[in-house]
Design a protein around this nucleic acid. Structure first.
Ligand SMILES: [Mn+2]
Ligand SMILES: [Mn+2]
Ligand SMILES: [Zn+2]
Ligand SMILES: [Zn+2]
Lengths: 124, 124
DNA sequence: TTATTAATGCAATTAAGTTGCAATAATACG
DNA sequence: CGTATTATTGCAACTTAATTGCATTAATAA
């Protein structure tokens, strides 16, 4: 299944690169208003994930946010840091701070996801 | 708006107390199969939240889980600890470990939510 | 016992995301 | 370049978790 280079794909990739933060389908749709279908955005984003170009994270608002993979390994996406979601500008950013914890004895870890909501520097 | 004591309310409260963990509507529905409507469960649970008897937390599976308030203050629900969701038995439990972090300068905190998925002692 | 109105059941709606399918358009190949 | 192949798209329909509208039922206060 060879991927093709389409306008939709390019446009969404540019948005992700420009954003420098994780974007939701909703936000992307607002940016490309009328240019492409809602479903196309979802499909392009999910293909990015399949290809290991992005990963998606479910935020504490119940929506998925898509972020470019930078220091991610093939099947081990590195987002074991806190994610901050600004209630003002709705930006989602990866914080420096790593999430650390120790599980009770006998427990096995599969995944962790930590969200902080509040107001970013510009919105506070 | 004076609350009334109904069978549905009693039954759901008993389940929450017996569970000793946070329950989803889905799980409760399975337990009370056929006794009450799906919507009634949601409404009873949400009323508990309004009354400060429970709080609800959105898990990393996109579902709400309802937990009895123990050491919660009126409008400041204390769940600043890690929540563990077992992929085997689907139980959600509050871990001892507190979530700690420092926000970048100028940021304002509103809320945080940390989830760990994996397998509990019995399921591992 | 009766009146008041909170709580319920059922159908319909919302919100975020996915899926089916026919039409469109990248790209590989002669 | 022209054509064939099939990935991608658009649109409608569907899914899942949760909420809302509304007529009916039933707690409880009088
Ligand atoms: Mn990644
Ligand atoms: Mn609470
Ligand atoms: Zn902001
Ligand atoms: Zn378990």
């Amino acid at each position: 299944m060879n991927r093709r280079n389409t306008p939709a794909k390019k446009m969404i990739m540019e948005l992700l690169q420009a954003a420098n933060s994780a974007l939701s389908q909703e936000r992307i749709e607002a940016e490309v208003k009328g240019v492409m279908d809602r479903v196309t955005i979802y499909r392009v984003l999910n293909r990015f994930c399949e290809d290991g170009v992005t990963h998606k994270i479910l935020a504490d608002d119940g929506k998925f946010y898509f972020a470019l993979c930078h220091s991610c390994e093939e099947h081990n996406h590195a987002h074991d840091h806190f994610h901050f979601r600004c209630l003002g500008c709705e930006k989602v950013e990866c914080l420096q701070e790593q999430v650390t914890f120790t599980l009770p004895d006998g427990y096995r870890l599969q995944n962790s996801s930590s969200w902080i909501t509040g107001y970013c520097k510009s919105c506070a």
